[in-house]
């Protein structure tokens, strides 16, 4: 499903930093976990084609998106990745409806002319945001923004869903509810999903496979749910894994 082996060097302030990410998994739901500054967001951006790796290869769902050896570098607009940004990146100058319509690709059911409006209405209803359809993003709540961002990403009929810290901008009381909604949405769409987070609760809720990113190096847990049974909590498990990761030569 996901097969990544890339390298990217850049300057972080005045320090050179090299990110090496390599993992491969058949799981449809992958969580990338790591402390702040470990390169999680960067990894997602590399996979989505917003930044080009220096070298390596990226394969998702059987498609080669990037291959420095074969000279392949599919532009972001052709990767068909529904991307939900950490701060949602809703277009501030467009209404909720226009945001969702931005990348709208009519599905098979809505292919006939004049049906694009229906597709948007369907998404608005499904995410319970119909009442704010004409509001500007600056005037809606954090939870609503998150639903708009997800609806916008799904409107383009993506092949994969990328979620960059989708819950971190929400206040803790809301987070639990939104987490459940998100799990339901992912299950409903059946889309392969990559989620990045630094919250062990998210790892527990979402991960089928888990990639741990620390100081620019990767470690993968292929079957998270099974290995998790050996530990008392997600916190404990992640502690142990991060510790062992650091001890590697």
């Amino acid at each position: 499903m996901f097969s990544i082996d890339v390298e990217k060097s850049f300057m972080r302030g005045k320090e050179p930093f090299t990110l090496r990410v390599a993992f491969e998994t058949d799981s449809r739901t992958l969580v990338i976990f790591g402390p702040s500054g470990s390169g999680k967001s960067l990894t997602l951006q590399l996979m989505a084609g917003m930044i080009a790796p220096d070298r390596g290869r990226i394969m998702i769902n059987g498609h080669v998106l990037f291959d420095s050896g074969g000279g392949v570098n599919l532009p972001a607009r052709k990767r068909r990745i529904g991307y939900v940004f950490q701060d949602y990146a809703l277009f501030p100058h467009m209404s909720v409806r226009k945001n969702i319509a931005f990348g709208l690709v009519p599905g098979p059911k809505t292919e006939r002319k004049g049906k694009t409006g229906d597709a948007i209405d369907e998404l608005l209803a499904r995410f319970e945001i119909a009442h704010i359809a004409d509001s500007m993003p600056g005037r809606i709540s954090g939870g609503q923004k998150q639903r708009v961002a997800l609806a916008r990403a799904l409107a383009m009929n993506p092949d994969v869903l990328f979620l960059d810290e989708p819950l971190s901008a929400l206040d803790p009381l809301l987070r639990r509810k939104v987490r459940q909604d998100l799990l339901d949405s992912i299950a409903l769409t059946g889309l392969p999903t990559v989620l990045i987070s630094h919250d062990p609760e998210d790892v527990d809720a979402f991960a089928k496979s888990l990639v741990i990113l620390d100081s620019g190096e990767t470690k993968i847990v292929l079957d998270y749910q099974q290995e998790r049974t050996a530990y008392g909590s997600a916190y404990e498990m992640l502690d142990v894994l991060l510790e062992s990761n650091r001890k590697r030569p």
């Binding site: 917003m50 972001a76 607009r77 990348g103 383009m156």
Partner: peptide, 22 residues
């Protein structure tokens, strides 16, 4: 915000659309 432009690209917009719409 560069993420707004990246969001537009991920939604299938070409560079012309990114410039004029975002």
């Amino acid at each position: 915000d560069r993420n707004l432009e990246n969001a537009a690209r991920s939604l299938g917009a070409n560079e012309m659309k990114v410039f004029f719409l975002v």
